[in-house]
């Protein structure tokens, strides 16, 4: 049998196509590892906790509650959203939390694997894949909750909801792509993670999460530029069975993500050895 030959040297003068092929074949061959890592983390997450699954949606729910109280008490007067405000705000914060989780997942998982990264040579793409698995499993409960609200507030289930799973996967795809670019720097400097979470918390107000896009003004312009707007709106509109705006932007965004995702994967792949060298463990 012919043995696999591996070469390690400085100038890995490889073509991007070859790296990408390797990246995908590693991702494919590491399905079991990714699943195992995801199961490990999910089990560990719930085994050491009484409230367990509640933590998955408590933050978006509490944000939503604050906004419901603000709106009901008349402190804020908000434009009509077309659906009962609680449903609007719950769906907004829940979907927003999925976006944030998706963006943070690659970095969180790579950081969490520091211990093995510096000791065992395994396909690193498994970390990305296991992040996706974990995202899906953590989001499922949020989605069930969302459907529950849709029924309770009599928004009802529209046929467009059948497209929701695709839109959900699109969110994960978008978030992971962004995450892949943040991860290498974020592994080196803690600042990156902090800046990202700070930035995202501001960005939430430039995204129609808890209120709709205003008719005019600076915020309208900002929101219409913000790539998270079409991502969030389209997904939410599918849920509510509403008319979908910004469809061109939405598809344009996803189309742009495809090459970016490939570049991100290659970037991630070549940066891991550099990070391992610089990090403790």
């Amino acid at each position: 049998m012919e043995l696999k030959i591996t070469v390690y040297q400085k100038t890995n003068n490889k073509r991007i196509g070859k790296l990408l092929r390797e990246s995908f074949s590693d991702m494919y061959s590491s399905r079991f590892l990714a699943k195992q890592l995801a199961i490990r983390d999910i089990k560990a997450q719930y085994r050491q906790s009484f409230l367990g699954i509640i933590w998955a949606f408590i933050t978006p729910l509490s944000t939503a509650l604050v906004w419901i109280i603000l709106s009901n008490s008349g402190t804020l007067s908000l434009t009509d959203t077309g659906v009962p405000y609680p449903v609007f705000v719950f769906s907004g914060t829940l979907l927003w939390s999925i976006v944030i989780d998706a963006i943070n997942a690659p970095m969180l998982n790579t950081n969490g694997a520091r211990g093995i990264l510096s000791k065992i040579n395994f396909p690193k793409e498994a970390l990305i894949l296991s992040g996706v698995y974990k995202l899906i499993s953590n989001s499922l409960i949020k989605i069930v909750l969302l459907l529950f609200f849709l029924i309770v507030y009599k928004v009802g289930l529209h046929s467009s909801i059948l497209l929701f799973p695709l839109a959900f996967l699109a969110i994960i795809f978008f978030g992971t792509t962004i995450g892949l670019f943040i991860t290498p720097l974020g592994m080196l400097y803690n600042d990156v993670g902090k800046i990202v979470s700070l930035g995202l918390s501001f960005l939430m107000y430039a995204t129609p999460v808890v209120y709709v896009i205003p008719k005019s003004g600076l915020l309208k312009t900002l929101m219409e530029i913000n790539p998270l707007t079409p991502l969030l709106l389209t997904t939410r509109n599918l849920l509510f069975g509403q008319h979908i705006e910004y469809l061109a932007y939405y598809f344009g965004l996803l189309a742009a993500c495809i090459p970016l995702f490939f570049i991100g994967l290659v970037f991630y792949r070549i940066s891991i050895p550099i990070i391992v060298e610089r990090m403790s463990a």
Binding site: L3, K4, I5, T6, V7, Y8, Q9, K10, N12, L117, S118, K119, I120, N121, P273, I274, V276, E277
Partner: peptide, 18 residues
């Protein structure tokens, strides 16, 4: 293969267990 060398070359054949 955890870190890359700055100079020189390593060639390894087969399955590695570390």
């Amino acid at each position: 293969g955890l870190i890359n060398p700055d100079e020189g070359k390593v060639t390894i054949k087969g399955r590695v267990c570390a």
